[in-house]
């Protein structure tokens, strides 16, 4: 297992480097002079020179790249133009907000998605199956930012149950956190619930056809033991991989949802950076999010290998 983890980490090094090159390169795609875009049409030549000096744009490309990597090695991703703070600090401050909503969404996704998938598989072609699959299909098709707005119309404007936006940390008030996080979490979760329900259903149907399930039933085991112990454990193996993907999608989807609900998380930070052309923030934010997701994927692979030893052996060959 230890060898597998080390191999997986070594494999990811070129990808981590390439991700940093892409993050650096994207901001060099800017047509024309980025200083003009940042300073706006009213900026004087002297002001533009200051912006260029601050961003290091007056230096040759290779020097800019060298400085970028030298800063990276010291944990310095530059300073946000809008906030006047180091990018790393500004991002780390907001991680707990995004993470708490992503985790809430994850819990909703797992509870509802797995339940829908299992119920649909156990009642194959019945009304519960049709209903769960229609729900899943609608979930997959609704744009999450629009769903968020519809939830605001229903639960905030008409019913007045939940606030239209904002965020209360759970350390301050759990009830306040629940009130402010529920609509963003549901908007994020619905698409993932649909995906997970569909995958769980097909995996469950596959597992129910296996010989060991027939054997378990032939032994006279009660149905809930057959499903809960023998089938569900095996359903979870491919589902773990999907959960990794789902978590990364939840984190990235929060970018739009946080703007809709005015949640002060990493997503809204990057969203406002993009709109106001805060290039150091966009560059650093892209890199941090991509690296975090890569590490998350490695963690998922390790978990997968732990639950399914065949993966480790295949890898070793």
């Amino acid at each position: 297992m230890g060898r597998y983890i080390v191999a997986r980490l070594i494999q990811s090094i070129p990808v981590l480097i390439l991700v940093s090159v892409i993050s650096f390169g994207i901001m060099k795609l800017v047509p024309g002079d980025p200083a003009t875009l940042i300073g706006g049409p009213s900026a004087t030549p002297a002001e533009l020179d200051v912006i260029r000096q601050n961003l290091g744009l007056d230096q040759p490309f290779h020097v800019q790249m060298w400085k970028f990597y030298a800063g990276l090695a010291q944990g310095d991703l530059g300073t946000s133009l809008l906030l006047g703070k180091p990018v790393l600090e500004a991002t780390i401050e907001r991680i707990p907000v995004s993470l708490s909503i992503a985790l809430y969404s994850m819990v909703l996704t797992l509870l509802i998605g797995l339940a829908c998938g299992v119920v649909a598989a156990l009642n194959r072609n019945g009304w519960a199956d049709q209903g769960a699959m229609i729900f899943a299909l609608i979930g997959v098709s609704l744009p999450n930012f629009w769903l968020g707005l519809m939830l605001i119309i229903l639960f905030s404007v008409h019913l007045g149950w939940l606030p239209t936006g904002g965020y209360v940390p759970w350390q301050e008030s759990f009830y306040g956190w629940l009130r402010t996080s529920t609509m963003p979490a549901v908007s994020l979760a619905l698409l993932q619930i649909g995906l997970l329900a569909r995958i769980t259903r097909s995996t469950m149907l596959e597992v129910l056809r296996q010989d060991y399930i027939r054997t378990a039933r032939a032994k006279g085991l009660p149905e809930f033991v057959v499903i809960g112990k023998h089938a569900f454990k095996n359903v979870m193996i491919p589902v773990i991989t999907v959960i990794g993907i789902i978590f990364s999608v939840l984190l990235s989807g929060s970018l739009v949802i946080e703007s809709v609900f005015s949640v002060p998380g990493v997503g809204s930070l990057l969203g406002s950076a993009v709109l106001r052309r805060d290039y150091p923030m966009i560059q650093g934010g892209l890199l941090l999010v991509a690296w975090s997701l890569l590490l998350l994927n490695i963690l998922v692979d390790v978990l997968y290998a732990y639950f399914d030893p065949r993966v480790r052996y295949d890898h070793g060959r």
Binding site: V15, L18, V19, L29, L255, V274, L275
Partner: peptide, 24 residues
């Protein structure tokens, strides 16, 4: 495949936003 791995490491909407922000 390493290049595609690196591009796929970015969440789709974030990468699209980054490129759209750079190009206008």
């Amino acid at each position: 495949m390493r290049v595609t791995d690196a591009l796929m490491a970015f969440p789709p909407i974030l990468l699209a936003l980054g490129i759209a922000a750079a190009l206008g």
